[in-house]
Computed example of a mutant assay.
Amino acid sequence: MTVRVVVADDQELVRSGFAMILDAQPDIEVVAEVGDGARAVDAVRRHAPDVALLDVRMPVMDGIEACRAIAAAGSCRTVMLTTFDSDAYVYEALHAGASGFLLKDVRRDDLVHAVRVVARGDALLAPSVARRLVEEYTARGAGRVDGAPLEVLTARERETLLLLGRGLSNAEIAAEFTVSEHTVKTHVGNVLAKLALRDRVQAVICAYETGLIAPGTPPHGGAARGR
Rank of each mutant, 00 (worst) to 15 (best):
Ala148Gly: 05
Leu111Trp: 02
Ile213Phe: 05
Val6Cys: 04
Glu209His: 10
Ala72Phe: 11
Gly165Asp: 09
Gly147Gln: 10
Arg15His: 01
Arg39Ala: 15
Glu92Lys: 11
Gly37Glu: 05
Arg131Trp: 13
Val145Lys: 10
Leu153Arg: 03
Ile213Trp: 04
Thr183Gly: 07
Val31Cys: 08
Glu172Val: 05
Asp105Gln: 14
Tyr89Lys: 11
Val115Asp: 00
Gln11Asn: 12
Leu164Lys: 03
Val51Ala: 06
Glu135Gly: 05
Val30Asn: 01
Ile28Val: 13
Val184Arg: 03
Val6Asp: 00
Phe101Leu: 07
Thr186Leu: 13
Leu162Arg: 13
Gly143Trp: 09
Ser99Pro: 05
Thr138Gln: 14
Cys76Asp: 05
Val30Glu: 00
Cys76His: 00
Val31Lys: 01
Val31Pro: 02
Asp10Gly: 07
Val6Ser: 02
Ile205Glu: 13
Ile213Pro: 01
Thr186Phe: 08
Asp199Ile: 03
Ala32Ser: 10
Ala142Gln: 06
Leu13Trp: 02
Tyr91Ile: 09
Asp42Ala: 15
Lys185Ile: 11
Leu212Ala: 12
Glu65Phe: 07
Lys104Ser: 07
Leu94Glu: 03
Phe84Asn: 12
Met80Ile: 14
Ser169Ile: 04
Leu168Cys: 14
Asp146His: 12
Val184Thr: 07
Tyr137Lys: 05
Leu212Cys: 12
Asp110Thr: 02
Ala32His: 00
Ala8His: 03
Arg166Cys: 11
Met61Tyr: 09
Ala24Tyr: 01
Arg108Pro: 01
Asp27Gly: 02
Ala69Met: 12
Ala139Phe: 13
Ile205Thr: 12
Arg120Gln: 11
Ala40Lys: 02
Ala224Gln: 01
Arg45Pro: 04
Ala214Met: 08
Cys67Gly: 07
Glu157Gln: 15
Ile64Val: 15
Ser128Val: 14
Val145Met: 15
Ala96Gln: 07
Ala142Ile: 13
Lys185Arg: 15
Leu102Arg: 02
Val31Arg: 01
Arg39Trp: 06
Ala38Lys: 12
Gly147Glu: 11
Pro59Arg: 12
Asp42Gln: 14
Val117Ile: 14
Arg15Trp: 00
Tyr208Val: 13
Ala98His: 03
Asn190Gln: 12
Thr210Ser: 15
Glu29Arg: 08
Arg227Met: 06
Asn170Cys: 07
Thr186Gln: 10
Thr210Pro: 08
Val179Thr: 13
Met61Asn: 04
Arg144Asn: 09
Glu209Ala: 10
Val60Tyr: 07
Lys104Glu: 08
Arg107Ile: 06
Met1Thr: 02
Ile64Lys: 00
Ile21Thr: 04
Asp10Arg: 06
Ala24Asp: 03
Tyr89Ser: 15
His182Pro: 01
Glu172Arg: 09
Ala93Phe: 04
Ala119Gly: 10
Leu102Met: 14
Asp9Ile: 02
Glu65Leu: 14
Val5Gln: 00
Ile70Leu: 11
Leu124Cys: 08
Ser99Trp: 03
Cys76Val: 13
Leu161Asn: 09
Leu163Tyr: 08
Asp199Trp: 00
Asn170Ser: 09
Ile70Glu: 02
Val56Pro: 00
Ser75Lys: 14
Arg227Tyr: 06
Ala123Asn: 05
Thr138Ile: 09
Leu102Cys: 07
Glu151Cys: 08
Gly17Leu: 08
Pro219Val: 09
Leu125Gly: 05
Ala69Val: 06
Lys104Pro: 03
Leu133Ala: 05
Ala52Ser: 06
Leu103Trp: 04
